[in-house]
């Protein structure tokens, strides 16, 4: 039980690194050209982040950031944001 609570906390904290640009809990401010990611489908987010990482989806900055993440971190972030209210 305590282990679960710790894992949830660590997952939230690491996913919060996305919030600087994509908004707290993945909800960007209204009208933002940097998109909200809260509530997006988990598999879609994993596929997009991996496409940024391998260069198949062009980007201004996301290709550089995703190259710093492990596949496990990408999946953990996608799981977190998929579970957030839009």
């Amino acid at each position: 039980m305590a282990q679960d609570a710790a894992s949830v906390l660590h997952q939230r904290a690491n996913a919060a690194t996305c919030a600087n640009c994509h908004g707290s809990e993945g909800r960007a401010v209204p009208g933002s050209t940097v998109p909200s990611i809260a509530g997006l489908p988990r598999d879609y987010m994993v596929a997009q982040m991996k496409a940024f990482k391998d260069g198949s989806r062009p980007a201004t900055v996301m290709h550089q950031l995703t190259k710093g993440l492990t596949d496990q971190q990408i999946e953990s972030m996608a799981n977190y944001f998929a579970a957030q209210k839009r």
């Binding site: 919030a19 640009c21 960007a28 940097v34």
Partner: peptide, 9 residues
């Protein structure tokens, strides 16, 4: 937009 979002965050 980064600025708007980080201020909100």
């Amino acid at each position: 937009n980064w600025a708007q979002n980080i201020w909100a965050d």
